[in-house]
Design a protein around this nucleic acid. Structure first.
Lengths: 234, 234
DNA sequence: AAAGAGACAATTGTTAACAATTATTGTCAA
DNA sequence: TTGACAATAATTGTTAACAATTGTCTCTTT
């Protein structure tokens, strides 16, 4: 019992973490669509936890902007609008090119292997035409760069930005552009390998701009206007 | 009753927000020292809320790294170490110079006034030798820059970084350097006013390096040794 | 048949009691 | 006096019941 107390104490806090992680993954591979309701009972049953932990997990998800808490209504997967999208890409363009440059300067052998393995996985997913993996791995490449930089704060920040980006792409991605072209990740990795910080940084900036340009905000993706126009069509 | 339902619903979520804000302010002006315990009962009494809201607020504070939750022990103001400090300054140097450059390019009249007013307040606090205000306003200048940029995500991120910086300075700040020299803020503002993005960016980078150089990690700032040496003095 | 009122069901928000763990105090023996 | 050990107090973690709000369905009325 004494020995278990350690793992019990850990799992006590990590139950919520596990829930957050699963929701995060589901959003990353577009399994959970924006505006999907996450009821407390659903989470309780899915993860076999009490209502308290479910609510704590939802609060954590809300604090990360993945979920939207509406009073007396429940929790819903966030539904970013164009303004949110602008903020996310603005933030990413402030952070990622600079971060990639630093990584190019300082990365060690283990880091290079991690990035190389990841790019290989991306390629494999693309060959297998596994859309869910493709889209998830594309996003996680950017988080992995933060991870190999060793900066936990930036890793968490990028994780949040990438998750929001996934929601944005789910809403406004136009066809092909829904996932990064993996050759861009490969080129960035090449620049890092050759320790060319300036080039790695610039390639990253361009890569982010490409993703941004692949978005189409012309369609209204709100909840109400769609219905209104639909009803008028009748 | 119907009218109140709106404000009630708002305050329902904003009770926690209010608590988080107050703790944030207290940390920013060094009223709450690292490792201080925040018991649930304390918060319940201080803010007149139930235990549920107190715990939600503590969870939010923990998710922002301001507070450290220890299982069955309670919540303690975070106690960053040198590694944490390195991460925070690394992140700030990735973000802030780039952000200030953008602000210099795009700021409008209202934004300039906000920054100007803030610098005046800093000067006034310095003249009045109000140490708490000096240290708080010094940190909030950096958050204000993110605010005038209009990017809510970066505002939240910087808020978190600045709060952690406040804890770091409280632990490792050596004498004078405990607060930014306000002339540096003034110079940055001048560069922004003159729309010189490059200079504003560079000044910001140097400013952050100056704060970092004012830290002294040689002393051990653990929890126990302090008390032991204090008692030995008796 | 459509609109609206009202009852019912389902979900979320809150409170309070209970359980478990940790911190503190007091006692006893060396 | 000091150390370990036991009992008590205080604090946190969890569960369950209750309250309040929202959504749905039916029934009435026009």
């Amino acid at each position: 019992m004494v020995e278990n107390s350690i793992s019990d104490a850990a799992s006590a806090l990590d139950d919520e973490h596990k829930i957050v992680d699963r929701v995060y993954s589901a959003v990353m591979q577009h399994t959970l669509a924006p505006n999907t309701k996450l009821s407390e009972s659903t989470i309780c049953e899915s993860f076999g936890v009490g209502r308290m932990k479910a609510r704590r997990a939802l609060l954590l998800l809300a604090s990360q902007g993945i979920v939207d808490l509406r009073s007396n209504r429940g929790a819903f997967i966030a539904c970013p609008d164009q303004r949110d999208a602008d903020e996310v890409f603005e933030a990413r363009i402030h952070i990622e090119p600079s971060l990639v440059g630093q990584v190019a300067d300082r990365i060690d052998r283990a880091g290079l292997k991690a990035l190389g393995d990841h790019v290989k996985m991306e390629k494999a997913a693309r060959r297998a035409d596994n859309r869910q993996d493709i889209i998830r791995l594309s996003g996680e490449f950017h988080v992995l760069i933060a991870t190999v930089s060793g900066n936990k704060f930036l890793t968490r920040t990028l994780r949040e930005l990438v998750t929001r980006t996934s929601l944005i792409v789910a809403l406004f991605g136009s066809g092909e552009s829904s996932c990064c072209r993996d050759d861009e990740h490969e080129k960035i990795l090449e620049a890092i390998k050759s320790r060319n910080a300036g080039q790695a940084s610039e390639l990253t900036r361009e890569h982010l701009e490409h993703i941004r340009l692949g978005l189409d905000f012309s369609q209204t993706h709100n909840s109400e206007p769609d219905l209104i126009s639909l009803l008028r069509a009748n």
